[in-house]
Design a protein around this nucleic acid. Sequence first.
DNA 1: CCTTGTGTTCTCCG
DNA 2: CCGGAGAACACAAG
Length: 299
Amino acid sequence: MPELPEVENLRSGLEKTILNQGILKVEVRKPKLVSGRGTLRTASSKKVKEFIQGTTGEKFIAVERRAKNLIFKLSHDKILIAHLKMTGQFVYLPKTGKKSVMGGHPIEISETTLPNKHTHITFHLQSGTLYFNDTRMFGYVLYYPSLESFEKENHFEKLGLEPLEKSFTVKYFTESLKTKKSKIKSVLLSQDIVTGVGNIYADESLFESGILPTRNASSLTKDEVEKLHSAIIRILKQAIKAGGSSVATYRLLDESRGNYARQHKVYGKAGLNCPRCHHPLQKILIQTRTTVFCPRCQK
DNA sequence: CCTTGTGTTCTCCG
DNA sequence: CCGGAGAACACAAG
């Protein structure tokens, strides 16, 4: 579920809670989740051993984000890279005081028994416990013993630019889109020009900029590229500010757990009327992904 | 029961 | 190399 705004909220939540904490003990219940990325990864007990031995006794120094990935920097230049994919979540439970919970998936947050059957990695920290849960097990947490080993692997090789960095300019976006032969929605989902936009924010950005998701990326006019560029940035920033508009990401346990109010205008609203022109919103499939748009005011 | 849908990304074909 | 389909897996809902 998590796209850039949700991961960014998770990142800042983790930063507030686990930073400077030592790792006392680590448990890995699903070896596959620490054994590599990709669909064909196989469980490796050697990786599990390296993961546990390498992280135990170290301390969390920083929590950063690249696209939808979390980067945990540990003492001694050790690094953990986590991807939540669709259903991954991190939950932190302090030993005492306020119970803060954070994650990527709303269902299990309300079921606060931890660990549960979807808990695959547990970090016992000085002041609390950090759980990595993932129902569908597409996510992963990878361990790198050094800066060199991390850079050598080039984990982020295929990713495009961060949409909220200054380097993501209209000029860059224009030039990049010219080279693409596929639909604009496919390009947004592909992560290789601009990262962090998933199904929700792709549909929302295209609606906001009045562009049909089926348009060929290279056919966008200068004006359309400018509108899409600013819509992506504006919508992502608003979503981060709202705490992630699509799902709960970081909050206190005592807050209303059903509060997943989405601010989107088209995502998940097929059949309802367009908020702009009141024509019924249409649903189609693009690359096996549900896509909702207004056939009248998106051109 | 079976079918469909799910916020991601990698791999395999053509 | 490129683009699209299917796969990785586990549910919930209809």
